[in-house]
Design a protein around this nucleic acid. Structure first.
Lengths: 157, 157
DNA sequence: ATTGAAAGAGTCTCAGT
DNA sequence: ACTGAGACTCTTTCAAT
């Protein structure tokens, strides 16, 4: 998209703070970063126009909604040229929430979220096996998510 | 945390809509779901009290901030009992943004975000190799992120 | 539980610096 | 560019249903 961006320390500090809590008011964030609320507002508008900030998302505890199973799937393709067609098929499966084309052992790497092991089994056995071009898959079920966090774009003051 | 929750269709629809765009106003979301803004407000407060909704996060385009490298790391441990101590060491590395304890080939599965390949090399070679208990690692560099999305908690109307 | 309206808080705009 | 204040919009509360 864009190669050379003119972002200063303040821009990065705003992003850093709001990646953790997007609900802080401009006035409060201004106090924290020693500028006025108006300045925060101008900067955020600039970041949105540059499409660096893409909006706000609700953070939801999936476990309490009954989604108990997270797993990662390494996919071996018969030919790597089949990537696009297989990606298209995988996108049709709503339980698959992320797909990356990767170097190394696997051709593709997917993440899947299911309500239970039965649902995971159904997707792996009944849905994935039907897709033409997948040679085989390896599944890694997450027993525990140790942490998830954002990258650090600005050091604290 | 909680096992039996009494969430109805409206609760799930609110979560579904706001997972995609948390900036919609209560009045507008109410119109979309055929209830008043006041009802949306009461439901969201309930979901926050139940800790199902955990707040809002800024969605940021990391690529335009110069973070060009996403990679996945499969970690083999010398003994699986070393999980906790290795997890603690990995958490000290800011480039590692996610860690899961998994079944299958690897004992742990990490995700790492770096500015460039040099930074990835530094973390893999200089930082990971120093951690006691890691037997070896396998790295999968993402060449392309095909999609990232949320799980579907409620079907559209 | 849901509604609609009033009170309070936050966002957005703009003239001045 | 940044500030502060006024206009506007949204959140929050609450009495009525």
């Amino acid at each position: 998209m864009s190669s050379k961006l003119n972002l200063d320390k303040l821009d990065l500090q705003i992003i850093q703070e709001m990646m953790q809590d997007a609900e802080i008011s401009y006035a409060d964030l201004g106090k924290k970063l020693f500028v006025s609320g108006g300045t925060i507002h101008v900067r955020i508008k600039k970041l949105e126009e540059l499409r660096i900030v893409k909006g706000k998302r609700l953070s939801v505890d999936l476990k309490s909604l009954g989604y108990d199973v997270i797993a990662f799937i390494g996919v071996y393709l018969e030919k790597s040229s089949l990537y696009d067609s297989v990606a298209k098929e995988l996108q049709k499966i709503p339980q698959i929430v992320r797909l990356n084309y990767t170097t190394g052992n696997y051709s593709m790497f997917a993440e899947i979220i299911c309500k239970d092991i039965q649902e995971l089994r159904f997707v792996l056995h009944d849905e994935l096996q039907k897709i033409k071009g997948i040679e085989r898959t390896e599944t890694f079920i997450s027993l525990e998510e140790s942490f998830v966090r954002n990258v650090v774009v600005a050091r604290p003051e």
